[in-house]
Amino acid sequence: MAAVMNNPPVPAPHYKLTVDDYYRMGEAGIFGLEDRVELIEGEVIEMSPIGCFHAGVGSEIPARLMNQLLGRAIGWVQYPIRLSRYSAPQPDFALLRFRADFYKTALPTAADVLLVVEIADTSVRTDREIKAPLYARHAIPEYWLVDIPARCVEVYAQPEDGVYRQIQKLTAGRLTPIAFPEAALDVAGLFQA
């Protein structure tokens, strides 16, 4: 007769991929062009598909902001940011410090990021519970979670000790980046078709 073990499972050690490992895998063809993945804390994470409303909002935010910030900041749309040895997320949009080379020689790091934006229709929980803490741990000064189902923007600011100390939900009014308070978006307008 077999004995039944009631002990909790022992977590097996995991190998964490580095950003360099991740890029070598891409160069080797392990990830195809159709694979939507990003590296978070050493793990390759599948990204949610982008629907038409998500894509529209994802086009509107950089178009409206960059129209006001041309030559003062760089709009970074769905490109990687190297946060650490083990994380290179690809946010929907990031506002970066201006650099004359447009980051052609090296990926931006956390120190280059002024604002990061994730747009969520099916990924709200992931963006709130995984991405927000990740960005806070790396002291990204501001994070916007555009919650399409709730028709609101969650604004995270004041990262300290790995958490954002200020969080507010906006359903209307002006939304401005902390770094550029003169550049504004109409929150309600983001959710109009």
Rank of each mutant, 00 (worst) to 15 (best):
I74M: 12
L107T: 07
I61C: 06
N7V: 15
P108V: 11
A55H: 12
A55C: 08
R64N: 08
R99E: 08
G26A: 13
A73T: 06
M5V: 15
L115P: 12
Y22D: 03
R128N: 05
N7M: 15
I30Y: 14
A88M: 00
T122P: 14
K104V: 13
R128Q: 12
I50S: 06
L96S: 10
D101C: 09
P11Q: 12
Y23D: 01
R85G: 06
F93C: 01
R72M: 12
E27T: 00
S59M: 12
W76R: 06
F31D: 02
D127I: 06
P11D: 12
G75W: 06
N6P: 03
W76I: 01
P62I: 04
A28G: 00
K104S: 15
A100S: 12
I119P: 00
G51L: 00
W76Q: 04
R36D: 03
D112L: 07
I50C: 08
R24K: 13
R82Y: 00
L96N: 03
L83A: 06
P62C: 05
A55N: 15
H54I: 11
V77G: 04
V124W: 09
K16T: 12
S84P: 13
A12M: 10
L115K: 13
D101W: 03
E60G: 00
D127S: 11
Y23H: 07
E34Y: 05
E27I: 00
T126A: 13
Y86V: 10
R99S: 04
I74R: 10
A88Q: 04
L107N: 11
I81Q: 03
A94L: 08
T126F: 14
I81A: 04
D101A: 09
E27A: 10
Y79N: 12
C52I: 14
P13A: 11
A55P: 07
G29R: 02
H54K: 11
F53H: 05
Y79C: 08
L95S: 07
M66A: 00
Y22T: 00
P9L: 15
R128S: 07
G42Q: 02
D21H: 11
G71W: 11
F53P: 05
W76G: 02
E43P: 01
T122A: 15
M66R: 06
W76M: 03
W76T: 01
E129H: 05
R24F: 07
G42A: 02
G32H: 09
S87D: 04
Y86C: 03
R85K: 15
G58M: 03
V77R: 05
G32A: 14
T105S: 14
D112V: 08
D121Y: 09
G29F: 05
I30S: 03
P11W: 10
A73P: 09
G51Y: 01
M47Q: 15
C52K: 09
T105F: 14
S84C: 10
A28D: 07
G56R: 10
R82T: 00
R97L: 04
S87V: 02
A120K: 01
G51H: 07
F93M: 02
F93V: 00
T109S: 13
L69I: 11
V117R: 08
L65C: 09
V116T: 15
R97P: 01
I50E: 10
A55M: 10
V124M: 03
M5E: 14
